[in-house]
Design a binder for these strands. Structure first.
Lengths: 345, 345
DNA sequence: ATGAAAGCGCTAACAA
DNA sequence: TTGTTAGCGCTTTCAT
């Protein structure tokens, strides 16, 4: 009943020094073939594996990345988490998950906890942290990347979709589709994604000679979104929008349900609906939602690259502020412009 | 620019010994109020926080729980993960995520990696591991709980829904609804959830005087499920099932889409559909799926309890094999039995 | 109640 | 290439 095999026990069995064992398990260390063989043999027999924590203590590298995430009910996040975890795993890192509710104090507390684990880096998914805390991370030399959140300031990196341009394109698309009463259902107003999407949407409408016909707030929450849809559409047919951009897909599904089943409207005949994210259910036939695709794989790849750059090069790596183009995914939930798709050239 | 504050620095500033500092941060250690105050003050000024890894080394408790999960696209898992992470966080533990694909070799490798982190426990979500590996965990004294997976053998704990009884109830419900041609679309046959649900379903049909009218395999995969539905229903009306139990909700959505949009069938008029899991989209009006609810919160609670029992009491804690009743959630995707709901008494 | 001292299992100089 | 030595930051006896 072997309990806990240490490098020392392996060393004894192999008849070498303990450091020899360490070197065998340290990529790029100098060991002779002969020693290596002896050590590997002894290690295999004993079932030895290096203790990552002990290694972390002395090397200062834990190979743990802390992930702060507020909720997993918007299916964009599970998707991102899966990709992130896989990407990091390939590089020998692992994700330590910290759930944090939206309130700022809580998040700061959670980040402190993360730091206690001596993580090599932190990814915050859709949560903001105080600049105070950002500084603590900076001085602890732990790189932070904000995923799907724009964050102002010097020392902070982030990766987002180009939410502004995404909103703008949606406006263009709806105007081209000859909608005349275009509305917006907002997400939680504290979120940069919400702000940027709305700003871009408004800018686009403006650019194409329209302005917002109606606006409600859905808070990135299903119940709020449903209520917002009800308030917006349960009115005289004349006062009813003929198109609505819902700030993310997750809310858009609730809105579509309310429109179709609550108010008996036809999509897209009576009203066009567009969303943002392109989470898997958007492609399900029951919704078939026209939306902007957040390219989770690219976003994660940039997040990981940024992290690695800082980890491998703590001093010289620059903070990155990355914005990734979101392609318009045209499906059936919004009336198409005439002559769609546009012919190139 | 403070870099890394150690207990020693705090001790010096507070004018006490390093062990005094340690004791202040060790619940239940004996320190005088006076020392504690001095230490806390110094710690606060320096921004000191104990290094969890160093603590883990000496105490042997990392307060990390390893989670192995194969995929996050069945939305039951993100839900469970969120609850698990929150539950553990409240007890001072955190979740280290390991993604593993379904193949056995891979999973064993992943579990080895987990062990390297000196985790205090392991949760496997819907993946099986070799009994070989189970033994390694046992001898490393790391408790393992299989979540949503039945596992045979002595040393292993698991928590599942009562999948057999769930399948049986679904059969009963469909028979009571006067369906005469009841079919089944299976999940991945390597999964105990699949096996138990099917066995229960067949047992139920048998019990109520019917047998399976048709069967296809969906592999817990959307594309397979869609193809299975097509193969099963794209036939003469007489040969077409009038009800189908799809082994989980995730596949059921694809099946419903195929039936409605691919084959122009009405649900539940032409065919009843029931699923298993009760993931959030099952409640969305567009699907409104009758299904068995997996009570994620209860399942997670039992998982955590089992883990804690073993961690706090390594020798005496017994392995637990827990099966949680899954209630039938009746919605609109299946024709109701006459006189529904049944009157009690 | 407190300090001194001994490690937890490992890596990283430094010599040899 | 290899062994020796010195810690990483902490908890935990053991004295006092």
């Amino acid at each position: 009943m072997a309990e806990k095999i240490t490098s020392l026990q392996v060393a004894e069995r192999a008849g070498v020094s303990q450091s020899a064992v360490s070197r065998v398990f340290t990529p790029g260390a100098s060991v002779s073939k002969k020693t290596e063989d002896k050590v590997r043999k002894a290690a295999a027999e004993l079932g030895y594996r290096p203790n990552v924590l002990a290694r972390a203590m002395v090397s200062g590298k834990s190979r743990i990345i802390g992930l702060v995430v507020a909720y997993l009910d918007n299916y964009f996040y599970p998707e991102a988490l899966e990709i992130l975890s896989n990407d990091l795993q390939e590089r020998g890192y692992h994700v330590l998950v910290f759930m944090a509710s939206q309130t700022a104090g809580n998040i700061d507390g959670v980040v402190e906890e993360i730091l206690d684990y001596q993580v090599d880096g932190i990814v915050t998914a859709s949560v903001a942290m105080s600049s105070d805390l950002s500084q603590r991370c900076a001085q602890a030399k732990v790189p932070v990347v904000h995923f799907n959140r724009f964050q102002d300031g010097d020392g902070v990196s982030f990766v987002t979709s180009d939410n502004f341009q995404g909103g703008r394109e949606l406006a263009q698309f709806l105007v081209a589709g000859e909608h005349k009463k275009i509305a917006y259902i907002a997400g939680w107003e504290g979120a940069s994604t919400q702000r940027d999407r709305e700003a871009g949407f408004r800018a686009g409408l403006d650019e194409f000679g329209q302005k917002l016909f109606a606006r409600e707030v859905g808070e990135f929450d299903v119940d709020h979104a449903r209520a917002a849809a009800h308030a917006m559409f349960n009115v005289d047919a004349n006062d009813r929008p003929d198109a609505v951009f819902v700030a993310n897909d997750y809310m858009a599904f609730a809105v579509m349900d309310e429109l179709r089943f609550g108010l008996d409207l036809k999509i897209p005949d009576d009203v066009s609906v567009v969303g943002f994210d392109d989470v898997p259910p958007a492609a399900w036939r029951a919704y078939d939602l026209t939306t902007m695709r957040q390219r989770a794989n690219l976003m994660v790849a940039e997040t990981v690259e940024t992290l690695m750059a800082h980890i491998e090069n703590p001093s010289s790596a620059k903070t990155r502020k990355i914005s990734i183009a979101a392609p318009l995914i045209v499906r059936g939930s919004a009336r198409l412009p005439k002559n769609w798709p546009p012919v190139k050239g």
